[in-house]
Structure formats: structure tokens, C-alpha cells
Write a protein that binds this DNA or RNA. Structure first.
Lengths: 342, 342
DNA sequence: TTGTAAGCGTTATCAA
DNA sequence: TTGATAACGCTTACAA
């Protein structure tokens, strides 16, 4: 019942023909007698023959795999993106490697290296820092890459991203329109490109609204609930440079961070939007059902994934050096976590 | 600056030695003169040499890749699991293929086939139906497999899962203890093994509580918000066999489905737990912050991923035929979505 | 200490 | 219409 390794050679022995005849028959080469072809195909089926992609790839330089490297596999924001990527790939017959860089530059570098070693034909990366662009740039000749989730510093690389400055602006203007002037920014890691863009949008918009910018109101931190809760603990308890009365609203780089604020609200008994108004970013699916429903800036996540994958496959299949840069627009979802103050 | 293909042969030319000397030097073979070794390693570094994994894999039958096949990449439930899987793999130097079967048997089969073709050394699968076990069983000789998220029908395969019957029992008993006797079960797809186990737990527990089982109170449906909302619409509008007054509580196979009920509550104006009490399953991270916080049955997702990956790697590295079956325990998280009625 | 040669499973070219 | 042969890049006896 069990056969050691069902290879072309193995089938050739069984069929009593040469292995190259089998190869041709399996490719339905019309040069081979139609009956022999049929017969061989039948045998292949019977023995459950599966071409060895490694050998194939070695020979053809094609592996039909692409790598996706993101900063947090668990985040609903990213999962919606690679869900979409996976769908496109599946449809086009590609397989997806997935790796988590955890916002760590070293790990990202390692992931890129591993994927290239695995022979991926393309890469989709949400990079940790500007530096990582350089890595990929260095390697661009060998692997096509599409960057997502941030605007690269150079314009000769392919990317799909949402304008984070515009997003921050949307958030700030909404809060200002609701009467807020002291806005705490709970940003992501400092080296993260999107953090930087978001912070710039925050600064510029405050300026445009004639509100003085205060450096201490911008916090760079890891994007997770525990870190955020801890930070809020410190603020509420007076152990931070920022005091509880220094702000009336909070803007976050991510809905996950916003949920961290909700968590702190539960433990410290402050209320949203009573004590603090909160505006998130991403619009992950559960935010609509939070208590209170979170006002947030929507990112077209599925679209990001679809576009990135499509772009990548196109540039792979056409051997073209694609430099398309697609900028998607954020959108305000006004819900109940912002209070109007006088 | 750019070199066509940095292979061992290429390095050999540069170093002026034979290619096998290079191969050995790169493996730090002590047979090679230490100076030559150093020199070659330096050159390799300089030219950014990266061994071709395809060739390596072809030769060694080792690809250092494993495949993960799940039913819904986007679900926070699964993402927590493969986050954990990815962490274990990364640490052990493996790369992960990820594929989505969308609860479709055909797609699952295709995914398994693709992964095997890619030469994965192992597979972690949350299978769509009992049938798919057979597929993998058939192929067990070639690829080690660990099943997660459901109890297989046979006991000679390796798996890690939470006892869904126990979970359903926990949910039902909690509701019964709160005075509920008419409980709607919003289950998953009918062929899904976990749906079946959950339904059995529901039935058995009702029986144990001396509550008559009513077949029409069990709904098999896709696990997503839209489907659930639609179903609830029909019920509320009287377009379903089940009428709005037929039940006072709802148990769901997944927190995502529970959120669908929350969604329906918003549009139809019924309240949770006022109109209906709700108990979810999975304990995905956002449930704690919903309005109201969702009472749910916790599954140890991270642990599932870690155990599955560890088990798999062990059986790969020891060439052992591992048949461990690990059963994890669910846990009630009592929050505010269940009302006590008299 | 270094080099030669065979083989992993394909594909593709050329000869029979 | 079929078969022999070389090549993809690597590992590993074995020979020099």
C-alpha cells in the first residue's frame, strides 16, 4: 500500500517506459502517443503522484511561493490584511509563508533572509523601520517586494498604504470640533514608520488648529493592551510626566491600544467618554460593539491586502519592475467614545 | 554590485578552489585548512551567499517548513493559535506555510495537497470535517500531522484540542443555574466536528438538567457576523421556525457568532441580557470590553498552539510516530451578558 | 588538505 | 513517438 517515493522514475518503471516519456505524458505533451499518455496519467493518479516542487523549483527557478512578513500576526488589523492576501494567492496558485516580526528589526531581517532562502518569488512586508526598507532594497534584484502599512522614504519601491498623516488629522479635527484641545497621543514604537507619520499628522493638525504642541503629550509605546494599561496606570496614579488633568481626549495609533485604555477605565473607574474621549485607528471589527462603541479611523484592510497581492503577482508574472505606490484613504467612523465639551 | 547567482560554484571560482572545498568550508568542516575556511567564509559573507534551500531540501529531504491549515485566518480565535505556533517554529528554525480552508472540504484537500507538494515536514490542521482526517491519515506516512480544535474519530493520530462537550456543558449549566430553560444554540456548520461535539454537549447537558431537548432550537450556520445577524433578523421578524419568545438565552459556538447577536441587538433594539442572555465560546480578547461584557467559555488558545507545534516538531526531529492526544479544559468566564431570571 | 563524482526529482534539448 | 543526457545547487562518500 505504501510506496517509498512516487517520482517520475518510479512511474516509469511501472509503466515500462523511460522516465522522460513519463515526464512528457504528465505534461500532456502531444508528442507522446495519446494512449501511452492516458495510461501513464492513470498510473500517476493511482499511485497518487505529486510532483516535487523543490526539484521543480530548482530547475525552473519558480517556487510559486510568496512571503508575508508582518509586525503582529495576532492583531485583527493584520489578520484581515493577510486573509485578503491569502485569498488572492490561493486563487492564483501561490502558497504563502507567514512570519511575525514583532516590531523587532532584527527579527524582521532574519525573516526576510529566511524567506529569500526559501526561494520566495515575492515578499509583502509591513516594515518595522525605515532601515528595513533598505534591506529589501538591497535585495530587490532577487525578490520583488511590496511594502504595506507605511509610506517608504523613497519613491522607487512598490507599496500600498493608508495615509497616516491624514488619519491623524481626521482624528484630531474630530476631537477639536468636539471641543477638545488637550489631546494625549498614545503612539506606537518610536522607530515604526507609521508612528512617525501619525505623530507628524498630529503635530501639523494641532498647529493648523492653533493649538500649542506639547511634547510630553506624545507617548511612544508597544501596541498591546498590557503596555497601555500600565502606562495609563502610571498617569492616573500621578507617576508620569503627564498628569490626569492634562488632557481630555486620547488618540491612539491602533484600536488595540484604544482597548487598552478601555481596560484601564475598567480598573480605575474612569469613564469613556465622560472622563476621557477616545479615538482609535484601524476600525477592527469588534470596535463597533465595545462599551462605548469606539470612534475610530477606518483603514481599508481588505483592500490593502488585495491590492498588495495583486500588485506583487503582476510584477512577478510580467517580470516587470513595478513601482506603483497606492495611497488609500482613511475614514472617520464616529461612534460614542467622544464627548462634546464646551 | 549585482551577481547573477551566488552559488557554491560561484564562490569556488572566486576563491580559486573546487566547489566541494567551498561546501565543506561553509560547513566549517575541520578537514579544510583553517585559513582557507576563514577566507572562503569571508568571501561568502562578502557576496551575501545564501544556500539554496530547494537544492538542499532536494538533497536532504529536509525543508524546515511546516504547514498550518485553518478554517478562518481572520478569526481572532485562530490567529492567537497560529501566533503561538509561529513563535515556536521561529525559535526552532522552521518556517510556516499558512492556508485558509474557509470551512470548505475541497479547499482543505487542496491545501493539504499543495503543502505536501511544497515538501512540508509536518502539518497542523484544524479540519473541516471527519473526512479530512482520512485524507491526512492516508498520507500520514509522508507527513506528520497534528490536528487541533477537535477530537478525531480515531485514536491513532496526534491532536490537541479542547473538550467541546465539556465547554457546552459549562455554558448550559451556567445558564440553567441562572434560571434559563429555553436556550437557543447558534452552532457552526453542520459538518464541522466541533459543531457536532458542541451540539452533543448541549443535548446531554439539557438531558442531565431534565430539560426537554427541542431540535428547532439548534441552528447550524456559518460562523460570521453577517450570517448570524441575518438569522436573528428572521427570528425577530417571525420568519423562522423559532419564534422570539421561544427562548430566553443564546449559546454560540464562537464569540464571533455572539458578536453577531450583539449586532442584531443593536439593529432590532433588543437588549442583552435584558431580552436574551448570551454565552459565547473562545474568549477572544475583545469580549471583555463588549457592551455588555460577554460571558464566555475560555479556550486556552496560546497553549493549543504551543503544544501542537511542540508535539509536531518533536515527532519530526525524533522520527517518532507520535500519537499523543492532549485534551485541554475549557473554563467559564462569567461576565455581564447573562441575566438571572426567576 | 583538497578534489572528483554521484545523486536528489525535475525540465528541456537533442538524438534515435 | 520515444529515449538519453545535461543541468538546476547542494551534500557526501571516496579518491588523490
Amino acid at each position: 500500500m505504501k510506496h517509498p517515493n512516487v517520482t517520475i522514475k518510479f512511474l516509469a518503471d511501472i509503466a515500462g517506459v523511460s522516465f522522460s516519456t513519463v515526464a512528457k505524458a504528465l505534461h500532456n505533451d502531444p508528442a507522446i502517443n495519446i494512449d501511452t499518455r492516458r495510461r501513464i496519467q492513470k498510473i500517476a493518479e493511482e499511485y497518487n503522484y505529486r510532483p516535487n516542487i523543490l526539484a521543480k523549483g530548482l530547475r525552473n527557478r519558480r517556487t510559486k511561493t510568496i512571503g508575508v512578513i508582518l509586525n503582529d500576526l495576532q492583531s485583527p488589523f493584520y489578520s484581515e490584511i493577510y486573509k485578503a492576501i491569502g485569498d488572492v494567492l490561493e486563487q492564483k496558485g501561490y502558497t504563502m509563508f507567514l512570519a511575525d516580526s514583532k516590531y523587532e528589526e532584527e527579527l524582521e531581517k532574519k525573516n526576510i533572509s529566511t524567506m529569500i532562502g526559501q526561494g520566495v518569488e515575492g515578499l509583502i512586508v509591513s516594515s518595522v523601520s525605515e532601515a528595513s526598507e533598505n534591506i529589501a532594497l538591497l535585495l530587490r534584484e532577487s525578490v520583488k517586494t511590496v511594502f504595506i502599512d507605511n509610506r517608504p522614504s523613497r519613491d522607487d519601491i512598490c507599496c500600498v498604504y493608508v495615509d497616516h498623516e491624514a488619519a491623524a488629522s481626521l482624528a484630531i479635527r474630530h476631537l477639536v470640533a468636539s471641543g477638545h484641545r488637550n489631546i494625549l497621543l498614545l503612539n506606537g514604537p518610536e522607530n515604526l514608520p507609521s508612528s512617525q507619520h501619525f505623530a507628524r499628522g498630529y503635530r501639523e493638525t494641532l498647529k493648523a488648529c492653533h493649538i500649542p504642541y506639547r511634547d510630553e503629550l506624545v507617548k511612544f509605546n508597544a501596541i498591546d493592551i498590557a503596555t497601555t494599561t500600565h502606562l495609563m496606570d502610571n498617569i492616573i496614579n500621578g507617576n508620569d510626566a503627564v498628569k490626569p488633568d492634562d488632557f481630555t481626549a486620547i488618540v491612539t495609533l491602533s484600536d488595540v491600544t484604544a482597548i487598552g485604555v478601555y481596560d484601564a477605565a475598567m480598573t480605575h473607574g474612569f469613564t469613556i467618554p465622560g472622563t476621557y474621549s477616545v479615538v482609535g485607528y484601524d476600525n477592527i471589527f469588534s470596535t463597533k460593539y465595545l462599551n462605548p462603541p469606539l470612534t475610530t479611523i477606518h483603514q481599508p484592510k481588505e483592500q490593502t491586502g488585495v491590492l498588495a497581492a495583486t500588485l506583487l503577482l503582476e510584477s512577478i508574472e510580467n517580470q516587470a519592475c513595478n513601482m506603483t505606490q497606492i495611497i488609500l484613504n482613511p475614514e472617520l467612523k464616529s461612534r460614542a467614545s467622544v464627548r462634546i465639551i464646551s
